[in-house]
Design a protein around this nucleic acid. Structure first.
Lengths: 236, 236
DNA sequence: TCAAAAGTGTTATTACTACACCCATGT
DNA sequence: ACATGGGTGTAGTAATAACACTTTTGA
């Protein structure tokens, strides 16, 4: 199936349409869920805040296009990324009829620290509750993404995607508090997450945030797969 | 924003691509989740089983295109329908480079009884566990849709979308058993659904399936909205 | 009268919530 | 010695799962 494309268009009644990807990039910093926004570089609306995106090339798949855009700005190609929705209102883009498929992604705190601004685009992190006006329907995309992130986080262990591979329980708690924007009971959180056996405790401690130091854990993907098969779901 | 389209293409670097919608139509019949499949009418692969779909027109939104396709085959325009995913692998369609956005929909049993075959296409219902080989990546679409349906049904009361406005509890139970393909305890199901106050009992009974007759209920959308605000979720 | 589906309650177990104090350590 | 964040346990409440018999009525 990989080299079957014919050069002549067989579907003669159909009209081709421009198609783009836009990336919603989330991170957690300063105890808050944050969004990475960019200065738009093309007309119309050049200079306004925007999601990062690009047109899909004729010879690349949608998934590859999304990865390409994300990798171009972050430098990473192993980032958690999910398709959100295809936005296809007729006049969503005053520049032309353009379909846009939005992807949302979660960036790890340690990766965040490498400076993104070095990479080709003017950008900044903004708190999810102070998102500026963005071009086109990008605010709508972001709102849908936040809702999807919250739904997903409730039953799938994606909080880990926002942390380095080795993390502490207080860090993980902070991520969930940031995602849901509410306090979560410390002791109950611990009990629940440790009982699930989704975390393996390491022999090391992270002493960067306290004198006592906090044990480092890593996510146990084998347990996760096993629990998933049994119909377990993760609920915070 | 509604009449801003310019006739000249401003995005000069971008290549337009064909875009289509495909509809995954679910119903419940004979205690099983069923899928409506169609004989494909265009080359290539004409005559093989397929989802129903069409190209998106240059002057219609994606959502309108999906409604149009669904209404053309069913005659109904108030059917529950959600966007599933944009499928965009390079060579997913041997006829050309085509993006396809899949939608899934739930058809009510009473609507199903109006004969679809009268409406322009050769079609049949197939049980979800005996789905034939479909053209292109349509089997992949269906599998993703079943999974999404199950996830959605677990926390959103969409079982009702597969039933007439007035239904009995045994019917509703049957729908959930069909979606999850497993037995659900009768008494616990009743207790849970009645305690939620999502159902209003009518003074009528449906005597079509038993001599005793079973009370008819309807879904209380006001209670649902109220519960939703309070963070309630529906879990079977 | 009997077959077929509708309807009903209890108990044991498990999960959840709310809540306050001690621990370890670097300064 | 003290300030800071890390770590722990219990008890009351609510939700869940497992389980079997009676009711109604048309044929």
């Amino acid at each position: 199936m990989n080299d079957k494309i014919k050069s002549n268009i067989q579907y003669t009644n159909a009209a081709p349409i421009l198609a783009a990807v836009d990336c919603i990039i989330f991170g957690v910093q300063e105890n808050e869920l944050q969004l990475l926004v960019f200065k738009r570089e093309v007309e119309p609306l050049s200079g306004q805040w925007s999601l990062i995106g690009d047109f899909i090339k004729k010879d690349e798949s949608v998934a590859v296009a999304a990865r390409r855009v994300l990798e171009e700005v972050t430098g990473f190609n192993d980032i958690y990324m999910k398709q959100l929705h295809l936005f296809g209102e007729l006049n969503r883009d005053p520049g032309d009829r353009v379909l846009s498929v939005a992807y949302w992604s979660l960036i790890r705190i340690d990766q965040v620290h490498q400076s993104f601004k070095a990479r080709n685009h003017e950008s900044k992190w903004v708190s999810f509750n102070k998102i500026p006006d963005l071009v086109l329907d990008h605010n709508e995309m972001v709102n849908m993404a936040i809702q999807t992130l919250r739904e997903k986080a409730r039953f799938h262990p994606i909080g880990f995607e926002l942390l380095p591979a080795e993390f502490t329980i207080p860090q993980l708690l902070m991520v969930y508090e940031a995602i849901y924007n509410r306090k979560i009971d410390d002791r109950n959180f611990r009990k629940k997450i440790l009982k699930s056996e989704l975390l393996d405790r390491l022999e090391k401690k992270d002493k960067s945030t306290s004198k006592k130091g906090s044990f480092l854990y890593k996510f146990n993907n084998e347990t996760y797969k096993k629990l998933q098969k049994e119909g377990y779901y993760f609920d915070f």
